[in-house]
């Protein structure tokens, strides 16, 4: 199956649309970094308003690690839209172009083609995430330096020691890859249902927006389905940045508050990926190629 994966990767590499997402991420990150570099202290002061009433915070709060967290918080909500741009076009784009029949009249089976296309879409997604990590983490570390991560959550503050931060980002990026692959798989499923490019992209984005609203609304009726929605779990990369405390309220270095929550989220996202890709394969196998 490697030759057809290579072909799919080559096509992604050659397609101009591929680079929109990379460009968009770079532009967004650079603008935010520039803004925080120029006026970051005011932003930090705003965030720390309540804390400053009680405590004096001494040290480089606005360091590369916090900048990366802020960037991920903002971007990991929007990157799925960029992933949808490619993933939701993988099958329907070819159907629209008429090239699907070229592929499906080769000796490779439809299942192989669909899986190869998903592998290629996943590769693109991971590459996008690596690009995001490079700019959001490494570039921020270079521009802003590193220090402890002083994380202001809604109801409490977490202070993670500098040497205890980097591995958490690695974990968060691995987790984020599951989130984005779920989006890619959803886009893929939508793509298998249509013969044009725009429909599945819009449908994928709409589905993400719809389920995100369900996930964030605190209405008892929705709470029943929430645990099973992929959107409920997509943002749980943040769990890597919450820390256990001992009985005497000391944060335990190297610990994660809720490992079970992360595992559960990864399992649910993986099930979604398998279901979406499985359904795509089934649909494409049954489909008459009329385009």
């Amino acid at each position: 199956m490697w030759p057809i994966i290579q072909i799919e990767l080559f096509k992604i590499y050659k397609r101009p649309r591929t680079y929109i997402a990379f460009g968009a991420i770079a532009a967004l990150i650079l603008v935010i970094q520039m803004g925080l570099k120029i006026d970051g202290e005011a932003y930090a002061a705003f965030l720390m308003k309540d804390i400053n009433d009680t405590l004096t915070v001494d040290g480089k709060v606005l360091n590369g690690y916090l900048i990366c967290y802020i960037l991920l918080q903002l971007l990991l909500v929007h990157v799925p839209l960029l992933v949808a741009l490619i993933a939701a076009d993988m099958l329907s784009g070819e159907a629209n172009l008429g090239t699907l029949r070229l592929l499906f009249t080769t000796p490779y089976s439809r299942t192989q083609w669909v899986l190869a296309k998903f592998v290629a879409a996943s590769f693109y997604t991971i590459l996008l995430l690596i690009w995001l990590a490079f700019l959001a983490l490494f570039l921020s570390m270079w521009i802003f330096g590193t220090d402890d991560l002083f994380l202001m959550k809604s109801n409490y503050v977490v202070l993670i020691q500098e040497q205890d931060v980097f591995w958490r980002y690695l974990g968060a990026f691995v987790f984020a890859s599951f989130s984005l692959l779920t989006v890619a798989a959803l886009g893929f499923l939508m793509s298998s249902l249509a013969n044009n490019s725009i429909g599945p992209i819009v449908a994928t984005i709409s589905a993400i927006v719809f389920f995100t609203i369900l996930s964030t609304l605190n209405i008892p009726l929705f709470n029943i389905v929430k645990p099973y929605l992929f959107t409920t779990h997509m943002n749980n990369w943040k769990e890597f940045f919450d820390i256990q405390v001992s009985d005497s309220n000391d944060a335990i270095t190297g610990s994660i508050l809720n490992v079970a929550k992360i595992k559960n989220s990864i399992i649910i996202l993986a099930i979604h990926i398998a279901l979406f890709v499985g359904a795509s394969v089934w649909i494409m196998k049954k489909k008459d190629i009329l385009s």
Partner: peptide, 27 residues
């Protein structure tokens, strides 16, 4: 020393529906 209330709006922290109720009660 005395501490005051700490609270950041969810809209800023982008933490929707994933609050830790135990931590909130304790705070």
């Amino acid at each position: 020393f005395n501490t005051k209330d700490y609270k950041l709006p969810n809209g800023i922290t982008l933490e929707f529906g994933d609050e830790d109720p135990a931590a909130k009660r304790k705070a």
